[in-house]
């Protein structure tokens, strides 16, 4: 027989609060734990001060990060570029430079830098189009990287292997570069500047 009817009596307010509490608790754990699980750290070969170097060189960023004659971009300078100034004997006193001279310059071994802004292989990015053609500052995408005294920790996504800088720092599109270098961030800037191109312009 139908003896139910007043079922709502079974649910006391305490049950609801327990539910809300559990929900919030799990959401918080997920929010903090997920990045910790998803991203791993990788050390840079040795420390490097952009600030120090900027004081020594004459032409700013371009002194080391330059265009080649065919319009391609060198990106991180090769060891040869470093050797234009550095010899096997350290120029300064820092222990970092000793490592650099002993392990890399002396052995003529390329430095395996971890590149924060390295994009997945499907992405085409032209520094020439942005710097030489559109006249953007390096800092508009790389932030104050050129003024830093230390290299921050490099983090990468354990699943994809890509740098966390691509899209791991914030999921909501409040931060643009350098905090985030997602396709949406490129697209936003393009759209704001009235450049709406075919997919091929940024993909290969």
């Amino acid at each position: 027989m139908a003896t139910h009817g007043k079922k709502q009596d079974n649910r006391s307010p305490a049950d609801w609060w327990l539910f809300v509490l559990g929900f919030v608790l799990f959401a918080a754990v997920g929010f903090w734990a997920t990045p910790a699980i998803l991203y791993a750290e990788k050390p840079q070969p040795f420390q490097f001060s952009h600030k120090l170097h900027m004081e020594q060189v004459g032409e700013g960023c371009q002194s080391c990060h330059a265009f080649r004659e065919d319009g391609s971009y060198t990106g991180i300078p090769s060891l040869e570029k470093c050797k234009e100034c550095h010899g096997e004997e350290p120029m300064g006193e820092t222990p970092e430079e000793k490592v650099f001279s002993k392990d890399y310059v002396a052995k003529n071994k390329p430095i395996p830098w971890q590149v924060y802004s390295k994009q997945p292989p499907c992405v085409f990015f032209s520094h020439a189009a942005h710097v030489a053609n559109a006249g953007l500052e390096c800092a508009s995408c790389h932030g104050d990287h050129g003024d830093t005294e230390k290299l921050r920790t490099y983090e990468y996504n354990r699943l994809t292997g890509y740098s966390r800088d691509i899209w791991g720092w914030s999921l909501i599109p409040l931060d643009g570069p350098p905090k985030r270098m997602k396709m949406d961030d490129c697209a936003k800037c393009h759209r704001d500047n009235g450049v709406r191109d075919a997919c091929f312009v940024c993909h290969k």
């Binding site: 065919d70 319009g71 032209s126 020439a128 189009a129 053609n133």
Partner: peptide
């Protein structure tokens, strides 16, 4: 198309 992009880079610089 990547060759077009390369040619364009050269033209830009």
């Amino acid at each position: 198309f990547h060759r077009y992009q390369r040619a364009q880079n050269k033209a830009f610089t």
